[in-house]
Design a protein around this nucleic acid. Structure first.
Lengths: 303, 303
DNA sequence: GTTTATTATTGACAAAAACGGAATTATTAC
DNA sequence: GTAATAATTCCGTTTTTGTCAATAATAAAC
């Protein structure tokens, strides 16, 4: 394979009509220029330059070769310069993935502010509730609400707590006894968040005591808004983060179940693919996101 | 400067989604692939590929880099393949230079036949009577009619003799005595071929004796046809090759001066720039030209 | 859960290539 | 003819590149 350097040397020699000047221009020893040109001529099987100690000129073949390579070489140089300029913390492209409900609730503000601050960074957001794999999803950074990730090939960064609680429509307890203790929860009406068939395990705690309840599997969904809608219809009890249920709790559309008992928070978390060194743009966004959350306690309160 | 190889490796890894398969495809050791990618990532200042032992995926930056380089790389590969195919003895381009008179008299037949035999070779002919330098003229091969070349940076190849003789219009000798011996030649009416101000030296020989006559410098021209036209008008005596004067001698428009004395022939010669190794196309043409002359004694007789 | 197979990485060593300076050759200018 | 300039060659040095084995890591199979 012919490399770029010999073509560059050929161009320099042809343009400057001198081996020695080309050497100076390219910061090479004259001997190197000779060797590189000889090598190229051998690779292409023809003489490219006619030279005496005083004159240098392209042969027909040399003119053809150079004329065909020159635009490509220039393109290459341009692209390289472009890229080296554009690979900076404040320019480039970012592929995100985020859960549907949280993403739609939270990201518009974040992304809007981010693009205001970094107009050079374009963003592509893929909303999915079941993230199988950060690498396969082909994204640079994943926003998730969860505990630690299951696949070990990722690095994570916790942003803030996302409190959650068990909720249900008040009407549900018209036909069922209102539970007073986690053990009262009837598996049949417990609707679980999850994407892999297995229902969640809910851990209720109160004053040092803790009860683990396996949610039911009659209704499992990977979408919190769906579960919320179901709950509002009085179809069952589910555990959802406040950013989904907040409005409903305030308006009384739903009520908290077992308010005396607390359920461990989820965490708003950023997951990276296993970078050796964080790409600049990714770092910029992660920092911005973190600062954004820190600077907006009001927003944090709605989570 | 970023070279082609790392881009090629990046492309292979991205396409095959595997370092080891890329290594196999490119006939490299897996370790080399790792090293080359690392180097490229360092050169560009960002991570391009996210990899675990099981998965490989481009980062955003990697996708951008590859998408910009890929078309250039493909262009490069195509051009290289093209060139390596096209640098053959029977394809390409040829820049010739030839003297005006001879060129117009002889080359049409030669070039026509040549292009019939080698349709893949394009020809560019520059007609000049004063060739200063084969290199500066930027040609691959020069057809000349002369003695050995003055600049030593060329290689030559004699094709055939080009006889010449002193001629004049018969009418000239109505007002001048007809010379019987070279010494009778009056410098004033001797018109010389030449391009550098100096008149020619004519060497007349007959039965072992030789006389060198310096031609006059009242009329010097680098164009034989012009001298011939002058001679026909009775303006003077000049020494010209037969291919110019042949018709006139047959028709009696001009007569030979000192027919008993002979003048050393010129040679139809091919001059090359100082090639280290003759470019294939040039060799093809030179061979064809030589064979053409050899195969056409009739043509040779007109020279 | 444990084992196994696959894969990327690392390090050490060998081979190859590129580099650079000095001497050589060749050509033009004086 | 002589000097000056430029390309080339030679050769020792450095750098890069390739290879091989060992290691670490991970997903899949049992």
């Amino acid at each position: 394979m012919i490399e770029l350097k010999p073509i560059k040397v050929l161009r320099a020699v042809s343009d400057l009509k001198s081996f020695s000047q080309a050497a100076r221009a390219l910061d090479l020893a004259p001997a190197s220029v000779t060797r590189i040109i000889n090598q190229l001529e051998q690779d292409l099987g023809t003489q490219l330059l006619v030279r005496t100690t005083r004159q240098v000129a392209l042969t027909s073949a040399g003119a053809t070769v150079l004329s065909r390579y020159r635009p490509l070489l220039e393109g290459f140089e341009e692209v390289t310069q472009d890229l080296q300029r554009s690979i900076r913390p404040d320019a480039g492209h970012l592929r995100l993935t985020a859960p549907v409900s949280l993403g739609i609730a939270l990201l518009p503000q974040v992304i809007a502010g981010f693009q205001l601050a970094y107009p050079g960074i374009s963003v592509e957001i893929n909303f999915t509730d079941t993230l199988i794999d950060v690498i396969e999803e082909n994204c640079d950074l994943a926003v998730r609400v969860s505990g630690p990730p299951n696949d070990k090939s990722t690095i994570w960064r916790k942003l803030c707590e996302v409190p959650r609680r068990a909720i249900a429509a008040a009407a549900l307890f018209d036909r069922l006894p209102c539970p007073q203790h986690p053990d009262d929860l009837t598996t049949e009406v417990l609707m679980s968040y999850g994407g892999k068939g297995e229902p969640e395990m809910w851990s209720f705690s109160r004053a040092g005591t803790q009860r683990n309840i396996r949610a039911g599997k009659r209704v499992i969904s990977n979408n919190g808004d769906f579960l919320y809608a179901m709950a509002r219809r009085g179809e069952g009890i589910c555990v959802l983060p406040d950013f989904i249920t907040g409005d409903g709790l305030q308006s009384g559309a739903i009520i908290e179940v077992l308010p005396e008992w607390s359920i461990p928070s989820l965490w708003l978390t950023l997951f990276y693919p296993p970078y050796e060194r964080l790409p600049p743009v990714v770092g910029t966004f992660a920092d911005y996101f973190e600062a954004f959350i820190d600077d907006h306690p009001d927003l944090r309160a709605t989570l």
